[in-house]
């Protein structure tokens, strides 16, 4: 059985969607969870949904380095970290500019690199710890309008692999997961640029339909647990069969 008993787990982007579900599931499996996001109210809602006691929340902006420092200073060593915070922006390459490039990269890539680097340097990762980076199936596709999102996620997947080799001697593992479309606030945002009808039609491309946050959550529970102790440096697709097509 998968258990996270006695594990201290950090989840970023836990005020919504996939991150919230990860925090809930980890607490149900016995972990003490620290959750991070910007929106205090939605973080509070997540906290109220957790099982057990001792959980903590931080309303911080991960794209601000001093905010990360605050989290680091107040952290106890973690057994698992889920780097899940992320944003999406739909923009054709023709319309990119410096600001658009950096806003996506700073949140989806830079902040995760900086957070993991500080956790390592301050010795805040326990031996046998597990790092999980939430990348995206977009990193392997060429969906028009997703250039910066896809590139930032591909960068994240690559980063996780290098980290896996650098941390292997300490017994710390690092893996990334690449979900296909999951129904969350982020996919609601897609309905800003495509009509509801098109979004429905796109779902027929998924042999098992769109996913639920708990579908990704299940894989991540496995990666956080000791059951996956021999898995590191993997970049795992979980997409309801989308890439079979």
């Amino acid at each position: 059985m998968i258990t996270l008993k006695d594990k201290n787990i950090l989840v970023t982007g836990a005020s919504s969607g996939i991150g919230r579900q990860i925090a809930i599931m980890a607490s149900e499996l016995g972990a003490t969870v620290t959750i991070v996001g910007r929106n205090m109210e939605r973080l509070g809602e997540t906290i109220s949904l957790l099982t057990g006691t001792g959980h903590k929340m931080y309303s911080i902006d991960l794209s601000v380095s001093s905010d990360i420092d605050q989290l680091i200073t107040e952290s106890l060593p973690y057994d698992g970290v889920v780097f899940n915070a992320g944003i999406v922006e739909y923009l054709p390459v023709k319309f990119l500019n410096d600001n658009k490039i950096s806003s996506v990269f700073v949140t989806n890539f830079d902040s995760n690199v900086i957070l993991s680097q500080k956790l390592i340097k301050k010795k805040l990762l326990n031996k046998k710890g597990s790092l999980v980076f939430v990348s995206s199936i977009s990193s392997k596709l060429g969906v028009p309008g997703t250039a910066m999102y896809a590139a930032s996620k591909a960068a994240l997947s690559s980063f996780s692999k290098v980290l896996a080799s650098e941390l292997a001697s300490q017994g710390i593992r690092s893996n990334s997961v690449c979900p296909g479309i999951i129904r969350t606030a982020m996919t609601e945002q897609a309905s800003d640029v495509v009509s509801q009808e098109e979004l429905k039609k796109a779902e027929s491309e998924y042999p098992l339909g769109y996913g639920e946050p708990s579908d990704v959550g299940g894989l991540i529970m496995y990666l956080l647990s000791d059951m996956s102790k021999w898995m590191t440096g993997s970049d795992l697709i979980i997409d309801g069969g989308f890439t079979l097509k």
């Binding site: 739909y90 923009l91 054709p92 023709k94 319309f95 028009p144 309008g145 800003d192 640029v193 495509v194 098109e198």
Partner: peptide, 12 residues
């Protein structure tokens, strides 16, 4: 006209 033109219209 395709999905990219639609995105370009939104960006414009």
């Amino acid at each position: 006209w395709d999905s990219l033109t639609a995105l370009s219209l939104i960006a414009m």
